[in-house]
Nucleic acid binder design. Sequence first.
DNA 1: ACATTGACCTGAGAGC
DNA 2: TGCTCTCAGGTCAATG
Length: 263
Amino acid sequence: MPELPDVEVFRRYLENTALDQPIEKLEVLAEDVVEGVSVEHLRSRAEGRRFRSTDRHGKYLFAELDNRDWLVFHFGMTGYLAYFKEETDKPGHTRALFHFAGGYRLAFVLQRKLGMITLTEDTESFVKGQGLGVDALDKSFGLDEFKRLLRGAKSGIKSALTNQSHIAGIGNIYADEILFQARVNPKALVGQLTDHDLERVFQAMKEVPETAIECQADPARMPGHYLLPQREEGGTCPRCQSEIKRTRVSGRGGYFCPRCQPG
DNA sequence: ACATTGACCTGAGAGC
DNA sequence: TGCTCTCAGGTCAATG
């Protein structure tokens, strides 16, 4: 779930639910999801504060406190946020829980503990420290820079797209969707692609996440020509009705249409 | 210096 | 039912 579009949806969710409310208590239910700072320190910085603004870079979500600290959330493969009031609505695998003055809570949920929470004073230096590349949807990130980043890459196009140190935000699922929309085979090497291929990949890299965000990152709401709702073996290509095939690209499962994305 | 693989963590679903 | 195996949208360290 948590690639760029999902994290952007979480960001807006936090913005629309939890902003400006006094944080009475931060309950950490799994201490190992707090990284870089002690749980005590994190709690002491957050309690008594409010979330003032939010930001996002790639798959990282930032929430600014009114003391100018930033909480950083990473959602791993399974994370999400849940805002609720009744104890019975608390999701399983809640790892941290913000209790607000009005009785509402915001849960940071991870099934697998591959995500984390940390603290930073400066989001830009955090991004730099993580070695993250430009956010895929950054307005100033244009075709020329895209070509420059990929030129010289010896890897496959899918690895290049999901390499967070080049471009931040694209993961396994959306890489498949982008390559499907661009009609490029997921096993293609960057060096084999024509300029025209790269232009289509670039355009899809901009359009797909934008559209996914509009659809709340929910495959059921996505346009009929999207692969995502059909992303399973035996699924049907929305363009040519061929059978969707599964493949393995650098250790990860991928799905594609052999006819629309010939290799 | 780069690219790919395995490990990390936990649960769901398939097959026996 | 219960066991084992494989897989899952993340990154990072260790390999090639």
